[in-house]
Design a protein around this nucleic acid. Sequence first.
DNA 1: CGCACATCCTGTGTGC
DNA 2: TGCACACAGGATGTGC
Length: 279
Amino acid sequence: MPELPEVEAIAISLRLLVARHKIRCVHVLHPIVTQPQSPDHVTRSAENHKIQSVARRGKYLFLVLDRGVIEMHFRFDGHLIWFKNAKDLLDRANRKPDGVHVDVAFELDKGVLAFTDNRHLGRVHAWESIDACLGAAKLGIDPTSNEFTQAAFAELLAGSRRPLKAFLLDQSGIAGIGNIYSCEALWHARLDPRRRADSITSADRRRLHKAIVSVLRRALECCLQPAPDFRDPDWWFRGIDDILRVYNREGQACRRDGHPIRRLAQGGRSTYFCEYCQK
DNA sequence: CGCACATCCTGTGTGC
DNA sequence: TGCACACAGGATGTGC
């Protein structure tokens, strides 16, 4: 589920918790999560290595170790949970009927960081460096960085014949935007998600650039208020629905003109928009 | 090359 | 209530 703002909020909170701590031991409880890498590869790469820092690239999260990195990607349902110690983990993890689902656990001296994903689409991998991570290497510009200039954005738009919605979801152009914030940015910019990327005017482009930046910044503020609390097994971002204007609001009145929000399928994903004010 | 589509999984909500 | 089905905030490989 998480897009750039959620992963960034996780990175910020996790950094405070784990930076400069050593990984004593790794438990891969559901090996599917390390595929196509072997559980042993991930375990050996992490054990007895110190976490120097936590980094984000697009929607990828990295534990940067004194040697190598651990990549985590949450896809739809992945998230992180904190356990007090190994005993706490054994007592509560994967115990039916209502234990906490855990796929991979990293035991530190001060507690246990667990990656969990019921749906098992998320992944935990080990690489020699962030740049060696195949997925991260293909990522485009980070829209929260100063590389995301009008000029760079204009060049990307001009080079794509795809609908704006598909253009924004393409991680190799701009990295970190997902289904929610692409819909939101297009609404704020008053642009039809079906418009071809190379068809928009410079005024359109400036509005969309501004909308992307402000939507992501607003979402990050929301994700940090309150900040993620990994100790609570039920934690998740709250209050985000309140700042959304179109996502998951089919049939509701558009906040600008009162017309009903429509849903349509684009590339197998749902797009929400107002066809009266988004042109 | 660009693009549409199926696929990987499991849980939840909806309508009959 | 039980059941079938649609759908889910993502990325990748396939075939056209």
